[in-house]
Design a protein around this nucleic acid. Structure first.
Lengths: 109, 109
DNA sequence: AATTATGTTCGTATTTTTGCGAACATAAAT
DNA sequence: ATTTATGTTCGCAAAAATACGAACATAATT
């Protein structure tokens, strides 16, 4: 009943944090929408989604907390864009995460 | 107040489903552990994690429901392995998802 | 000063997730 | 027929996620 690892690795936790942030279709849609342009306003994002603005705001907060996007106020609007640095980090982490099946012939039969 | 899209795309929902399944450090650890070998037993996975076996079983169920792993009974053990087909699908979906920032010079400044 | 446009925050309700121990199921071994 | 080893399922509790409308905040405009 002894567990070798009391904790998860920082790497696992970071990937999980990104994955969790991306674990909702609204947030996937937001990231896809943001990634294909320089930046846009809250209203543009809201128009892309079938949910109330309060809920959109919440999803944006989660993406921001995960470090995947940034927002800055441009009265009376709020401009959002991808957080490039962390987007690239996430991309790399997922690449590495998924790469094991290519490198090891023992993997996946 | 009119929303163009009443629904999310099937693609967004599929990526979100995979991402959600990967949105916990225990499940990331499980996938990393499984991916680097052909297969293993429940107990081996349990030994890698700092949580009770009932909880491990739950996480495995979520990964199985998302289609990322498979399990088969080998009394009195249960052998688990990556669901290669869906693992490859997930890999591709995430690759495409993250690729936008490379292809568009307008993206991420 | 009041109004308008744009988002955020608050309060609330519902659902889902996470976690555990106890009980159960299965098949092999005694 | 019991016992043993291995996992799953059940029942529960606590926490987090999802969603909405209403209220609020901000700054530009009238």
């Amino acid at each position: 009943m002894t567990h070798q690892n009391r904790d998860y690795t920082a790497n696992s936790e970071q990937i999980a944090r990104f994955a969790k942030a991306l674990g909702h279709p609204a947030r996937i849609t937001i990231m896809e929408f943001l990634a294909k342009q320089d930046s846009c306003f809250f209203g543009d994002i809201h128009d892309e989604l079938p949910i109330a603005k309060a809920t959109v705001s919440q999803h944006l907060k989660e993406l921001k907390d995960a470090g995947l996007i940034q927002g800055e106020i441009e009265p009376p609007k709020v401009r959002y864009c991808v957080n490039k640095e962390n987007w690239i980090l996430a991309k790399k982490l997922f690449e590495t995460f998924f790469s094991c099946c290519n490198n090891k012939k023992s993997c996946c039969k």
